[in-house]
Write a protein that binds this DNA or RNA. Structure first.
Lengths: 342, 342
DNA sequence: CTGAAAGCGCTTACAG
DNA sequence: CTGAAAGCGCTTACAG
């Protein structure tokens, strides 16, 4: 009381405004049945005293907290990826706008084993949860299939478990990329994959691409730039007749370009390269990268908005697929004179 | 009650264990004055009912929340940097271990202007705050100079405002790098800077380096790889006699290596390059990068631990400087035959 | 249009 | 070793 300067409470405001606790609470919550006069009076004294309502008390009375958790996978350097950054940025902005706070969680072993992902709800710590970067190995997702707790997969989805999601149209994106390559006259193409066994959306890209062009060779590039370099070298060495390489993400595509350049192959003159994601580097690499653009920030925003609708029971389930489009730049050679038919 | 399956409360546990509310609360908090027998009985029924204490209620009674905010600067693609990822990882792990939750905030204009950074405390939402990536422009830091609220700068510090911090020894790191170059016989070196006007630690590196070697040329590389490329080109063009380049961070150093290689200069045979930070790419670039290693994960852990001490009033202020060391790899040429004296 | 009272689910002196 | 009671700071029917 003496040292730790006591914070004002609703009671102080009531006294100093000469109204009851209820009235203060009512104006705090913007209830319109309070007269403008007393409303203003109360606001004035709140301002004068610098009053801030105690969120824990409100949460307790409200039975909800207005905070949601965003959980990221346990990836070393996971944050090092624009991918997560953009999505989280979108989530944060939308959450802030809607008055929600964002709790950060990492899906480490302990988080899963202790069922912390459920306890957060049960302890009334969060109202909902967003999970970025899900893959087949995240079995705990099954616990959300009953739709009992607001939960949503961000830019991924599950075939095994019926849970909510917002995902971009990977299949259509891959289809566009393949069609583009085909139109450019490429028949012999190498495919650099990654996460094909764990990640549903990777599988989707692969499947969809295959429907348009059957790759001569599919090599795993581990989703990294280094992996892309290795894979590219392996592909052109194994089959020198290949005229184009498609990589499942930009990091690998960029690695491929780098490696091919080192090997003396010109991109796109000798080989076309197309990526997926459209990370910032894609536009300022040399040559700039033709790639499928993912609206990551938008995905984050949408996911957050839908989750909050789930929380407010405005919707019961969400299965949303966002549009996605090919961005043609230099690395595919579309802008050079039309290639000879094979 | 019927549809929304009611969660159990302390009252249910008390009834089903045939004890009072106080007793349940006491065992919940591990109070030792409860007999082992009743303790076990209570535990059993908690387990049987899957009871989880309501965190908001506890926070309200406790008057603290066991959650801390980590705020990141408003950088486009901020998360795209391992820098932040590693630090946050360290913070998260330590926080979890100590029973704290992590709230994520981004220092956008609105966050500052609405004084949300203060409201979070006043609303009793958080117990403390960690700020990563502070620079001179973050004037709001001044509001923490009175040490009234637990607050700590992570891997940065301020000369203008007296606030708590945990920072790595940038000066000593830069000193080591310069000494190393000097020992290798380099007298004519180019310096690639970044944030020299805004970031205190950048200034420190610059100053400290200058005390050992006076660079022939200092060029701003904007802390990015592209900037590093430009800067490197500018340096070697302006002064062809330069034998080494030091960059304030690895991204720029890596960009420099790339550019120099493109220009036909061999690193380290023709020019030595040294960076700062030791990001993952530093070890697998070609040539691998000699750089000053920053223990980012450790810094995150320490920061979090110190903040929690601040919260518990075990310490009153923290000004901690963590050791840092040069990691010698290929790009400095230390491993080639000793260079001729200039 | 406003207030008194019960309730949200815990914790913590204080008694015994 | 255990319990009754007051309190944490709000919200929300329910009266008037």
């Amino acid at each position: 009381m003496s040292e730790a300067k006591r914070r004002y409470t609703i009671k102080d405001i009531a006294e100093q405004s000469a109204v009851s606790l209820s009235t203060v609470s009512l104006v705090l919550n913007g209830n319109t049945r309070i007269s403008a006069a007393t409303r203003d009076r109360v606001h004035a004294t709140m301002k004068r005293l610098g009053y801030q309502p105690n969120r824990m008390a409100r949460a307790l009375a409200w039975k909800h907290t207005r905070t949601l958790a965003v959980v990221m996978p346990q990836l070393r350097h996971a944050f090092a990826d624009v991918y997560f950054g953009e999505i989280i940025s979108g989530i944060y902005d939308k959450a802030s706008k809607l008055g929600f706070k964002v709790l950060l969680e990492i899906a480490r072993a302990e988080f899963i084993e202790s069922r912390e992902y459920i306890r957060l709800y049960d302890q009334k710590y969060i109202d909902g949860m967003l999970f970025i970067g899900a893959n087949n190995k995240h079995k705990f997702i099954a616990d959300f299939a009953d739709k009992t707790r607001p939960f949503l997969l961000v830019n991924s989805y599950s075939k095994q478990h019926d849970v909510n999601y917002v995902v971009s149209n990977y299949k259509y994106g891959a289809w566009q990329a393949a069609q583009h390559l085909l139109r450019l006259g490429h028949q012999r193409v190498g495919f650099i994959g990654g996460g094909l066994n764990e990640i549903q959306t990777s599988q989707d890209i692969c499947e969809s691409f295959n429907e348009v062009i059957q790759p001569r060779l599919t090599v795993d590039g581990w989703l990294t730039e280094e992996g892309g370099m290795k894979a590219a070298a392996e592909i052109v060495t194994a089959d020198p007749s290949i005229t184009a390489i498609f990589a499942l993400n930009d990091k690998m595509a960029l690695g491929a370009i780098r490696k091919l350049t080192e090997m003396g192959r010109r991109v796109p003159a000798d080989l076309a390269v197309v990526g997926f994601d459209d990370i910032p580097q894609a536009s300022y690499s040399i040559p700039s990268l033709t790639t499928v653009h993912q609206p990551l920030y938008e995905i984050g925003k949408q996911s957050c908005e839908r989750l909050i609708e789930l929380i407010h029971k405005k919707v019961e389930r969400v299965q949303e697929v966002l549009p996605i489009y090919l961005t043609v730049r230099e690395s595919c050679g579309a802008k050079r004179p039309a290639p000879q038919a094979a």
